Simulated scan of single mutants.
Amino acid sequence: PLPVLDALVVGFCETAVCLGATVALELGTPYAHSTRYPAPDHHRLLTFTETHSHAPAHVLSHPDPGILSSTRPVILVDDEMTTGKTSLALIEAIQLAWPRERYVVGALLDWRSPDAVENFRITGERIGASIEVVSLLRGDSSSHVAPEPTPLEDRLVPRSAPLLEVVLLPDVRRATPWSANIESTASRDASIVAEALEGRHIAAVLGVEECMLLPVLVAERMGVTAQSTTLSPVVVSSDAGYPIRSAVSFESPFGLCPSWAYNVPRGQEVAIITDGGDPELNRRMAREVSRHTGERVCLVLTADAARDWASRKLGE
């Protein structure tokens, strides 16, 4: 790990919830993330909008109501930036209530245009703060003719009757670094889930929307790939070289809008780990994935998801 920094890391839902958490763990900093599903026992600190999202409303919430009260730098973590408007919206909201001198935006991909880059400089001058951007890859984005979509019936036709196995682990919590001992807690919980999946031929572990850190840690222990569902629709095509080859569609277990899982391996067992949502919608999601793979899906329900399932006495 790097030397501990006196900063606060903030991840954007949904993809960067896990990415931001790993950055916070590596830097040894406190962590917060935006969410579409704020926990009832968390304090709602502010709201902002992701204008290009299919579910644009974000809430920044945290168990500690004073997490933003210091003047330490804020490190915002996202998977990619096209315009940077979401980052700037959050920066301005924080600066209005809890002013500070420095913000850093870290992204895997930075596709901002020169005008968008200039907008960061102008915004920083206007609010009286430094806004730095770091990324692993910098480039330009442009519009092209989309590949011919694979017909929906070709990518969603059931291969067999769904096979579903349910594992309830109510004592395993969402792995999010709210506290100093999160590394040991997350490691323990990941070991519990991995042990519960022993003896199965799992090829991939899927997280559900914002529940991503725990599935990643479980997949790491099992030596398999980690994926997640998403609220973002993406074109699916069989064109040579195109990366998104298949999709499974279902209603989000949280009932917000349609949800998707891409490139889930066919002909192999997968595990889905979720910590919330409606029990019946979780079951439907797992069954749709099973229809796609043609194999058994192990639905691992942790925390509130397990308790809700048990309280409704749902069978498999």
Rank of each mutant, 00 (worst) to 15 (best):
A7K: 04
L8K: 09
T15S: 12
A21Y: 08
V23K: 04
H42W: 07
H43D: 04
L46N: 05
L46W: 06
F48G: 04
T49R: 13
T49C: 06
S53D: 15
S53Q: 09
A55D: 00
P56T: 10
V77P: 01
A93C: 02
A93F: 01
A97M: 09
A97E: 12
R100Y: 10
E101M: 02
G106I: 04
A116M: 07
V117C: 04
E118L: 11
F120A: 10
G124T: 08
E125K: 14
I127T: 05
A129V: 05
S130A: 11
P147Q: 04
P147T: 07
T150E: 15
D154P: 00
S160A: 15
V166P: 02
L168D: 00
T176R: 09
P177L: 02
N181F: 04
A196M: 06
E198K: 13
R200L: 09
I202G: 02
A204E: 14
M212V: 02
P215W: 09
L217F: 06
L217P: 06
Q227G: 13
T229S: 15
V235R: 11
D239C: 07
V248D: 00
F250V: 01
C257M: 13
C257H: 11
P265R: 01
G267D: 03
Q268A: 14
D278E: 11
R287M: 13
E288S: 12
S290R: 03
R296K: 14
L314V: 08
